[in-house]
Design a protein around this nucleic acid. Structure first.
Length: 597
DNA sequence: GTAGGGTTAG
């Protein structure tokens, strides 16, 4: 084996046609000015074999590429494929595209494999449009389309959430006989559908495969099983498991893990145990996914000690916890408000050389937020960019919510501005957090000005935002404005929900407009929304607040007839009223029952 | 040498 030491920063830009390539060229040019040295080993065998294990970073990959293209005997296409694949693993998609263009310029031969890799790079960059533009290269070079090409493109379309487009392309492939879909094609479409809430459609595709005589494989079954489990439809999932067994398709660790996760999330621990023993009897052993699902399920139920036991057990069995496992435990402690313990696990994980990811930070930040420890939360926020991580929308929204909750209005505003200039685009949650925060602290002007801005843009606003606005206006003594907005809802095509009605009713009760509250209750029923316990309790408290005892008595009967009862807050209200005026007790015989409680 | 199923956060 010979070792060639190379320096990067080779002026490979000269290979490039700067005029036709956009950002990639610029990036490469900027990149090539950073000089660092590395070594790449090249194995001398029959011909040349290049060792990719030493390609540790983009620098190495680009250097190796330039070495390759300068070799007297040009490496074969598979070698270029392997290099590009390595780069994709490192997420350097743009560079794959750039180097591919360079290959073309140099007249290096290509084939369908490498074109698939290029298409995949575009798809992973969320540029399906560019992926399609690779297709003519097949035609020009007489390379036949491959089912892999389309499987990759389909995945890319789903990644951009274009469900309809993906399904349309899938149908087109069959209809126009462009290529014969295989079980992977079905799997890709089924997965895309199931991950976006279309479990039934994914299920139908499984049946369609059978009709078309494409034997579904374990994966195809697993996708549907997982989707059913995520919907909480464990009965259906189990029946598919049985179907698999019947057809002689043995479930594997993935199939079992999906089911175990489903039962964990429902807290059905007996079923989890049964599945575990069934698995092990089949010589299928739980892996880090399986254990993490169990650990997470336990943590979410507050059983962190049990989760800890499971973690010890998995380590004994030789299964190493990963960042997901630790995040589950950290979250478990955060949910119980034990931030010191959560923090210790976080530090322990780092000691174990497992790098925290953005989830780790978001979990911990949210833990501190709930404990109103925003100083700690902000400090963690600062740490994120020091690691090679970026705060995401959830990080920003969590911090923003926390700052509002502790009343740091100025900081919240500043933080939001920072988000606008350097962070991710605000989403619905962001806006709802802002609206909520402003109203809670009686910054009605700010809230309304944001609301007007959002309404003009017509996006990123939903019924939850309107509920916040209506509630905020009611609580800040602007009932008329709230009523106007409520009336406007239908004209902008938004349906009020039970909470909207409850919010309006609360507003009326607060202002003593009990008749209007009652009207709203009737209207709600007419529109097919069932009043809930809260609806009745709000009205009852309204009657009590304004001393309308006999009206309340009538209302109570209706309430009881529908199976609703006084909640803690109403009961306390009632007790206070009785204390002040004991004769109330005699006015309503039913009260004796409640009084005893 | 190309595509493909299961785990975490507001």
């Amino acid at each position: 084996m010979m070792r060639i030491s190379v320096r990067t920063g080779i002026p490979f830009i000269s290979f490039f046609d700067i005029s036709n390539s956009g950002s990639a060229t610029t990036i490469i040019r900027a990149y090539s000015s950073t000089h660092s040295s590395t070594s790449i080993s090249v194995k001398g065998k029959l011909g040349l074999k290049i060792n990719f294990e030493n390609v540790k970073c983009l620098d190495d990959a680009v250097t190796l590429f330039h070495q390759m293209v300068r070799m007297r005997r040009l490496p074969s296409v598979p070698v270029f494929c392997k290099l590009f694949k390595t780069m994709i693993n490192m997420k350097h998609y743009t560079y794959v595209i750039s180097l591919f263009r360079e290959m073309r310029k140099l007249g290096i031969p290509i084939n369908g494999f490498i074109l698939s890799i290029v298409i995949n790079s575009y798809c992973l960059m969320h540029r399906v449009d560019c992926a399609f533009s690779v297709l003519p290269i097949y035609l020009k070079n007489g390379i036949p389309f491959d089912v892999v090409t389309f499987n990759t493109i389909l995945r890319g379309i789903f990644a951009e959430n274009k469900v309809k487009d993906a399904v349309e392309l899938f149908k087109k492939l069959v209809r126009e006989k462009i290529c014969e879909p295989d079980e992977f094609t079905y799997g890709t479409v089924m997965n895309g559908l199931s991950k976006r809430g279309h479990t039934q459609k994914a299920f139908s595709l499984l049946r369609l495969m059978e009709q078309r005589n494409i034997k579904p494989k374990i994966n195809n079954y697993s996708i549907v099983i997982d989707s059913l489990c995520k919907d909480g439809n464990l009965d259906a999932a189990i029946s598919i498991l049985n179907e698999m067994k019947q057809k002689g398709i043995p479930p594997n660790i993935v199939t079992f893990s999906s089911l175990i996760d489903g039962f964990c999330k429902l807290g059905q621990w007996e079923k989890v145990k049964t599945l575990f023993s069934e698995m092990v009897n089949l010589n299928i052993y739980p892996n880090v996914y399986t254990f993490t699902m169990v650990i997470d399920g336990l943590c979410k139920e507050g059983k962190v000690e049990d989760a800890d036991e499971v973690m010890k057990h998995m380590i004994e069995k030789g299964v190493e916890p990963n960042v997901f496992t630790y995040n589950a435990i950290i979250d478990g402690y955060c949910l119980r408000g034990q931030l010191d313990r959560a923090r210790r696990v976080f530090d322990f994980m780092i000691d174990k050389n497992i790098e925290p990811n953005i989830f780790s930070y978001n979990i911990l930040i949210n833990g501190y937020r709930k404990e109103k420890k925003m100083v700690e939360a902000m400090q963690l926020f600062g740490e994120i960019s020091q690691k090679e991580l970026k705060p995401d929308i959830i990080t920003y929204n969590t911090i923003l919510q926390g700052l509002f909750e502790v009343g740091r209005m100025g900081d919240a505003k500043k933080f939001f501005d920072e988000m606008l200039s350097t962070g991710p685009l605000p989403n619905l949650s962001t806006h709802n957090t802002l609206l909520n925060g402003y109203f809670k602290h009686e910054f009605v002007e700010e809230a309304m000005s944001l609301f007007n801005k959002l309404e003009r843009k017509k996006e990123n606003i939903d019924i939850i935002s309107y509920n916040i606005i209506i509630n905020g206006l009611c609580k800040n003594g602007k009932l008329d404005e709230a009523r106007a907005i409520f009336k406007k809802l239908s004209s902008i095509g938004l349906l009020p929900n039970v909470r909207t009605y409850n919010t309006m009713i609360t507003g009326f009760c607060l202002a003593g407009l009990l008749d209007e509250a009652n009207d709203m209750l009737r209207k709600m029923e007419e529109n097919g929304y069932l009043p809930n316990n809260l609806t009745y309790n709000v009205i009852v408290r309204g009657f009590l607040r304004y001393n309308k005892i006999s009206e309340m008595a009538t209302f109570m009967k209706e309430m009881a007839g529908r199976g609703f009862s006084f909640d803690a807050s109403s009961a306390k209200f009632l007790v206070d009223v009785i204390r002040e005026n004991p004769s109330v007790l005699d006015m309503i015989p039913e009260l004796h029952l409640i009084n005893k409680k």
